[in-house]
């Protein structure tokens, strides 16, 4: 056989590459928003994998880094809009923590598109779907996250 096997694999993989997004959604707003997207049959790319947390303030920045280490191409954290937190103030802390963390990640060389924080309410199924779509577009443009990935 004259076909170089490794070339074939690369091409096949390259064509099939789809970004992998880990999303942390708060139970009360954003998870419900994602549920609503389902109930409303709003289609969005199948690249996102959702982890349910009670509140966006439960999301430890270490989870985000962990996801990148495990090969996630993007990480999304979504919670209630500030002021609407089920736990009254949780997302105000999220906002401070993740603003600093996102800036820090970008400072050490992560592209802004890799880590997204969004406020998605229980009635914003459409917004959730759009957020995923936007992220997938952005990540496809960037290509795989290989920098800290161990896979």
């Amino acid at each position: 056989m004259s076909v170089n096997e490794s070339d074939v694999v690369t091409t096949a993989e390259g064509a099939a590459w789809e970004p992998k997004i880990v999303a942390f959604l708060c139970n009360w707003c954003s998870y419900a928003g994602a549920d609503l997207a389902g109930v409303s049959r709003i289609k969005y790319p199948a690249n996102v994998r959702i982890i349910r947390v009670p509140c966006s303030s439960r999301v430890n920045p270490q989870f985000v880094f962990r996801a990148f280490e495990r090969g996630a191409d993007g990480v999304l954290v979504a919670g209630c809009h500030p002021g609407d937190c089920h736990y009254v103030t949780g997302n105000y802390y999220t906002r401070r923590r993740l603003t600093l963390f996102k800036r820090l990640l970008e400072y050490v060389g992560f592209e802004p598109e890799r880590f997204i924080v969004r406020w998605v309410s229980a009635s914003e199924g459409q917004r959730f779907a759009e957020t995923v779509k936007e992220m997938v577009d952005g990540l496809k443009h960037l290509g795989p996250q290989k920098r800290v990935s161990r896979v």
Binding site: P54, C55, S57, R58, N60, Y87, G90, Y93
Partner: peptide
Amino acid sequence: CQGCGACTVA
């Protein structure tokens, strides 16, 4: 405690 988990990250 209502279980939001904000403390766990603090």
